[in-house]
């Protein structure tokens, strides 16, 4: 499949999945997975980062639009989209020449695990910190981050295990 087409499809698929299915799960009354950030993990690595940052903003905004949260998802998504390159350099030791050949699927599981877990926790923490919007109830923010991150990671790894496709 054409790469652009594939990622356009992935964008709308993850957005719809998040808005219409995952936002309504509410495990134990309040725990939701936020799987749409998988788009940011899978997006191809390029030297030009305009596309990734801007598309992440649109994805976050799309989720915000349907959950009455202002710009919380947009903020967190843009944040991890910007710092993705930094963490790829940190965990995978990639040089600029390696960028076109970088695939999350062909990397060792341990490194991918570290990469995904860091970005997920970062994203979820920002999300719940802004959703809480005060310095009170910090323990609630950390607990929410932890539970949701576990849920997201379980879905992400099981999902990527089932749909193994080389992109």
């Amino acid at each position: 499949m054409n790469k652009t087409l594939y990622f356009t499809f992935l964008f709308f698929f993850l957005w719809a999945l998040q808005v219409f299915v995952l936002n309504n799960i509410l495990l134990f009354g309040y725990v939701n997975p936020y799987l749409y950030i998988a788009f940011i993990f899978f997006y191809p690595l390029r030297k030009n980062r305009f596309n990734l940052i801007f598309i992440s903003f649109l994805l976050g905004l799309g989720v915000d639009l349907f959950s009455n949260t202002g710009g919380i998802h947009a903020f967190a998504s843009v944040f991890i989209a910007y710092f993705r390159l930094f963490f790829i350099k940190l965990f995978f030791n990639k040089l600029e020449a390696d960028y076109p050949f970088f695939k999350l699927k062909s990397e060792p599981f341990g490194k991918v695990f570290n990469f995904v877990i860091t970005l997920t926790i970062l994203h979820h923490f920002l999300l719940f910190a802004f959703a809480n919007f005060s310095f009170g109830n910090l323990s609630g923010v950390f607990l929410n981050t932890l539970y949701s991150a576990i849920f997201t990671l379980v879905l992400f790894f099981s999902g990527s295990y089932i749909f193994t496709k080389d992109y």
Binding site: I53, F57, D64, G70, G71, I72, A74, V78, F130, F133
Partner: peptide, 11 residues
């Protein structure tokens, strides 16, 4: 983009 998001959160 972060500035836009923040202003959306506040409004």
């Amino acid at each position: 983009l972060e500035f836009i998001s923040l202003s959306l959160i506040f409004t």
